[in-house]
Simulated assay, not measured.
Amino acid sequence: MKKKITGFLIVLVLILLSVLIYAVQIVVFNSPRDTLFYIFQDIAFLPLQIAIVTVVLGSYLKRREKLERLKKINIVINAFFNEAGTDIIKGLIGSSKNYEKISERLNVQTDWTDKMFSKTVRYLKNADMQIEYNVVQIDSLTALMKSKRNFLIRLLENPNLLEHDTFTDMLLSVFHVMEELIARATFEVDNKADLEHLSNDIQRALKALLIEWVEYMRHLRLEYPYLYSFVVRKNLFSKKRNIYD
């Protein structure tokens, strides 16, 4: 309310100042007709000024602001994969029955084109991950998820992620798997329905994770080639990982 009153007072002062200047002009030059002519000329130009300021300049500022927000989001995404994402991918994909086939499609190279990234994303959207976990593997995965829980919660609290729907949805699907794991004190070996339910949740989270990982690699290739080269060399899906090449 206080800001609105302050804004109103500023506008009022400016209007009074404008009236005062025009009044002085009439008194000094004794030419009301010319003053009136210039007033209408200024008013005629006003719509053009509004168009320039609100449409052209406004669009530029919004575009610049959006780029700044996207830059902050990409920093968050980079932190996610460095601190948790890669480890979670390893944990989730560990029991994929077609791991070899999937890893071949994710063996990103330095010469990949934008078309190749798009093709990989399409493949992942339709891929059957064929996840199948046993109790021992789930215990290990639960320990991993617990170790990343606080970090994931902090990410979900980041307001910048509201600008990136797919990444937020991926985080929520991963968080859902984590909550499913933590909610169970133990897993029964014979409870196949429970294991199958959890495997489906894991498959959904893994698919979303891999798609975001591919998009993250695409972004690095375009914006940070030097970092992209490093990440490619330590790609967890490559059989010839070597950070010293």
Rank of each mutant, 00 (worst) to 15 (best):
E179M: 08
E179C: 09
E180P: 07
E180T: 15
L181Q: 03
L181E: 06
L181S: 05
I182F: 07
I182T: 15
I182H: 06
A183G: 15
A183W: 06
R184W: 04
R184L: 09
R184V: 04
R184N: 12
R184H: 14
R184A: 13
A185R: 15
A185Y: 08
A185G: 11
T186N: 13
T186M: 03
F187Q: 04
F187T: 04
F187L: 13
F187H: 08
F187W: 13
F187S: 04
E188N: 10
E188A: 13
E188C: 05
V189N: 14
V189Q: 15
V189P: 03
V189Y: 07
D190G: 09
D190P: 00
D190W: 05
D190M: 02
N191P: 01
N191L: 01
N191R: 09
N191Y: 01
K192I: 10
K192Q: 14
K192Y: 07
K192N: 14
K192G: 05
K192H: 14
A193Q: 14
A193L: 15
A193R: 14
D194Q: 10
D194A: 06
D194V: 11
D194G: 03
D194H: 11
L195P: 00
L195C: 00
L195W: 00
L195H: 02
E196T: 14
E196H: 12
H197Y: 15
H197L: 11
H197Q: 13
L198R: 08
L198Q: 13
L198W: 06
L198D: 14
S199V: 02
N200R: 13
D201Y: 09
I202G: 01
I202H: 03
Q203M: 03
Q203P: 01
Q203K: 09
Q203C: 03
Q203I: 00
Q203S: 15
Q203W: 00
Q203V: 02
R204I: 12
R204P: 06
R204W: 08
R204Y: 12
A205I: 10
A205H: 07
A205D: 07
A205W: 06
A205V: 05
L206S: 12
L206M: 03
L206T: 10
L206K: 01
L206V: 02
L206E: 06
K207Y: 01
K207H: 00
K207I: 04
A208C: 02
A208F: 11
A208L: 13
L209C: 08
L209E: 14
L209M: 08
L209N: 11
L210Y: 02
L210K: 02
I211F: 03
I211M: 02
I211D: 02
I211A: 02
E212L: 00
E212F: 00
E212R: 00
E212M: 06
W213I: 02
W213H: 05
W213C: 04
V214P: 01
V214L: 03
V214D: 07
V214G: 00
E215P: 02
E215T: 07
E215M: 10
M217Y: 10
M217P: 11
M217C: 07
R218Y: 13
R218I: 03
R218H: 10
R218W: 07
H219G: 04
H219P: 02
H219W: 13
H219K: 04
L220T: 09
L220Y: 09
R221D: 08
R221Y: 02
R221H: 06
R221W: 01
L222I: 14
L222Y: 13
L222R: 15
E223C: 12
Y224F: 08
Y224V: 05
Y224A: 08
Y224K: 14
